[in-house]
Amino acid sequence: MLELGRSLLHKPLFGLLLTLAVYQLALLLYERCGKRAFLHPVATSALVIALLLKYWGVPYAHYLQGNKLLELLLGPTTVALAIPLYKEFQHLRQLALPVTLTVIIGGLFATASALAIAWWVGASDQALLALAPKTITTPMAMGVAESLGALTTLTTGAVVFTGVIGVLLSPVVFYVLQLKDPRLQGVVLGLNAHGVGTARSFEMGASAGAFATLTMCLCGSFLSLTLPYLIPLVIH
């Protein structure tokens, strides 16, 4: 019986089932508690899944095998973001200038502030390089990390961590700034917390989601095009 359990744990099916079941429970909890940011399902279920995998002694690579399907769906879902963008196109156009300016100034500020703090606490050059694309959405960040010669595993970690942290901090930030316009909340989440922030914005409403999508794309494209030239000037 124990043998059977062991062999099932290492099947790809198990990894996928684990992700879906834990996520579903986390989602119920999140909705039950009024969609509070600190209970965001990505944060809670990542923690629970990691603990379970460690407890059962299942290596991350085995877990990942069964979850190829979800990673594969990220592509068409990114393409699907064109539909909310299209539906909110008129609203987006009205705020085109402030959003573009915020992306250029805010995108550079987000990168510079994280690098400055990491340098100050004594992170190595290798870690700084991997951190630099943290405000770029995962698929774009991978490309930038490669062109900078950074460790892509650390970059993926930094990007997803930033996204989760951004969502967790967002209620505090919106409260301090008295930022109540869902469109502007979407801009802040899309810029600072890219994919995870965009997902959270869609949970808050269609308008916030569309603005987050737009900001994430603009910020990702702008930084992907500039960081490969700027970063080598700062980190040798």
């Binding site: 996520y23 990505v42 923690l47 460690k54 650390l154 994919g195 995870v196 965009t198 997902a199």
Partner: peptide, 15 residues
């Protein structure tokens, strides 16, 4: 969308 980021998020605990 959140769900599709989850496997990468779990990776944070296995660096």
């Amino acid at each position: 969308l959140s769900l599709f980021f989850l496997p990468a998020g779990v990776g944070l605990f296995f660096l």
